[in-house]
Amino acid sequence: MRHYLKIELLRMLRNKRYIIFVIAFPVLFYLLYSNLWGSEVDQATGVKGSVTLMVSMGAYGALAASIMSSAVPWSQERQSGWLRQLQITPLPGWTIIVTKLIASMVLVLPALLLVALAAVLTQHVSLPAGEWVGLIAALWIGTIPFIALGLAIGSVLPPDTAQPVAVIGMFGLALLGGLWFPESLMPETMKSIAHVLPSYDYANIGWQIVAGETPQASMILGVAAWAVGLGALALLAYRRATVRA
């Protein structure tokens, strides 16, 4: 299974489109936005724009990596017959989805860490060690619902629909979660949609950590509930996709 994981990581890191979309984009946007608004300070929390944006773009990169590393590759493998190739080897069925989950979690890290590195190097962002650890850990573990969503999409849809659905899902979650512009600027209906989405709670946990606050239990519960719900959906969809009729 370790070798399987290695193979999964290798292939994604060789995929140029993936690298551009999920690693280069968030870093570039961070550099751009932090140059524009990096020195603005939030009146309520006293957090600088460069720090808030680091959380936003880190969260966006992690969200994008979660969905893009899971949905389309998995859908393609199902359709192309690679899944069958694996099913006729001694590899136990459950290792496929577990490996995919772990691989996606590893693939989230470059985007997350590079955005943080860009923040430190270009905006001289500094946080207490505890906040760094908490922030990275929260944004990392918090990707589980998004990976589960990606795997569910990949199990249910063929590649040519999985691709647009994954992209729309990714941008939709990012936009409504307030990663591109603050949720306070949204109209009321959008706001109420945003509040139930996992990306909103996910990003807020990050912002609360860098503001030196303890994340609200309701936010953590929100992400956890989505993780359980989407995880169950992903498992169900996976079982349906691999059923032997």
Partner: peptide, 16 residues
């Protein structure tokens, strides 16, 4: 691991 097979359809992983 007693069986190996070449099925009718089956693509490879393009990046490997």
């Amino acid at each position: 691991g007693d069986i190996g097979a070449m099925l009718q359809e089956g693509a490879l992983i393009p990046e490997l």
